[in-house]
């Protein structure tokens, strides 16, 4: 009651390390919503009572007024906690697009709520449309390169891929000298290791 649960949501976010993602806490989120509706009912009850007594809610300052004020403040407080929770997760979801590309691994997918998945998809689509309109992949070269080619070691079997317009088989533990822009997404996904 009175914002305790909303603050719990925020504590949870704060304790999740930056760049990590925890599961969407549907349960607690619902509880805060229910609590908010409860506050609203109480507030309405106060206002109706004042109305029935023929008092003006703008000017009268009696016990009902202060009770109502308390509930009103609690509603605003819960709203702030809920919005902050959603906002910070949305920021993380955006970062995921840049770090992991358009397809998320399953274990990360399972941590997102339904609307967050939608958000990710739409964000990814918008970014894709923009990048194709300027004909440039913005997600590579996030730090300025010194050499266009780098040496990499393969950590996970990738199979035959077209690199630099020729077929290369990336087998586990083999070492290749390939174009940096092509290696970057694979390094980001922990499939290659930069030597």
């Amino acid at each position: 009651m009175f914002g305790r649960k909303g603050a719990q949501l925020c504590v949870e976010l704060l304790h999740t390390e930056e760049d990590q993602l925890s599961r969407f806490n549907n349960d607690l989120f619902e509880q805060v919503l229910n609590e908010t509706s409860e506050h609203f009912e109480q507030l309405e009850a106060r206002l109706t009572k004042m109305h029935e007594e023929g008092l003006d809610a703008q000017t009268t300052k009696n016990a009902d007024f202060y009770g109502g004020l308390t509930h009103h403040t609690s509603i605003l407080r819960n709203k702030r906690c809920l919005l902050a929770y959603i906002y910070h997760r949305a920021q993380t979801v955006q970062r995921l697009r840049w770090q992991l590309g358009a397809v998320l691994p399953d274990d990360i997918q399972s941590k997102l709520s339904y609307s967050e998945k939608n958000y990710f998809k739409q964000y990814s689509d918008s970014l894709g449309v923009y990048m194709s309109s300027i004909d440039l992949d913005l997600s590579v070269d996030l730090s300025p390169p010194k050499d266009p080619y780098i040496q990499v070691k393969v950590l996970e079997n990738v199979g035959n891929v077209y690199l630099d317009d020729q077929s290369t088989s990336l087998l586990r533990n083999s070492i290749h000298l390939i174009k940096r822009s092509e290696a970057e997404p694979l390094i980001s996904q922990v499939r290659l290791l930069c030597l």
């Binding site: 760049d19 770090q99 399953d106 274990d107 290696a183 390094i187 922990v190 930069c194």
Partner: peptide
């Protein structure tokens, strides 16, 4: 060049219990 930080932790087997963070 670094891996995405979100994959940095040891990947836990996906289970249905929510993570306690």
């Amino acid at each position: 060049l670094e891996k995405a930080p979100v994959l940095g932790k040891k990947r836990r087997p996906t289970s249905d219990t929510p993570e306690n963070t």
